[in-house]
Amino acid sequence: MKLNLFVSLLTLVSFECNADIDVKKIAGDLSKDYKNETLWKMASPDQVINLMGQPMVAPKPKNTETSLIHVTAVHDGKWIVFRMKWKDSEVSESEKLATFSDAVALQFPIKNNEVPPPIMMGGKDDPVHLFHWKYQYQVDAKKGKKTIDQIYPNMTADMYPMDFKQKGNFKEASKDQKESFVGGTAAGNPQSFSKSGVDEIFAEGFGSSAVSDSHLAQGYGEWHNGEWTAYIARPLTYENGSKLLIGKKSHVAFAVWQGGKKEIGAIKSLTMMWTPFNILEK
């Protein structure tokens, strides 16, 4: 059943669609100024890339929510920025229970740019470097991570452990002491901290993703009239990660989540084939 599905999917996804992305070099400082429209006018035309609902492992989407993504990229010799556009009827945030954020992610090989690993999050000893932009992270960065009473204004809580409204004669507990009662925070889980915009993640196969400590990459997204335009900017080379070399070919894979359709984790639309891209010398 799975083999038949894969074969029929291959015929749908024609190789011509995933033509190389030519990444032109532009003058400028992309680490600061990657949204500049003038810069993007000089980029190669958008490539139209096919996506499908993740078909390999449950939990899977029932439908392909995002079937196309338009992509182009530029670099300045030090940083590379990908600009992606896809259709989504609504903007989705993930503050409340059972809500999920719109997101897009890029996946790069680490060991061998020309012969990339299995596309489903890499393989054992053949890891991938992921850059995951979530709209919720952008909201966090702009407005600050909301507290529970901001998300649910009618809520009530008598007290939090060691965190009383009226302290009386008690010495105020330290931040660490208060946070020892907050599971994710106390365990140092990256999910529990305010985000800047893009998570940098390493993975060696399905289910193994781990958020890295690095916060170099940046991202930004804008939704207009039923379409997201998102940018992910990253240094060309990481000492312990993806190394993109000027004048060389590499590969990238894409994944998109529509939060409004309850997409999260493995429930997403993604490319089942690596997209080649060339980092041009000029």
Partner: peptide
């Protein structure tokens, strides 16, 4: 249950 403060489940 999902914890909207820590953004993970418990």
């Amino acid at each position: 249950m999902y914890n909207a403060h820590t953004r993970i489940s418990e």
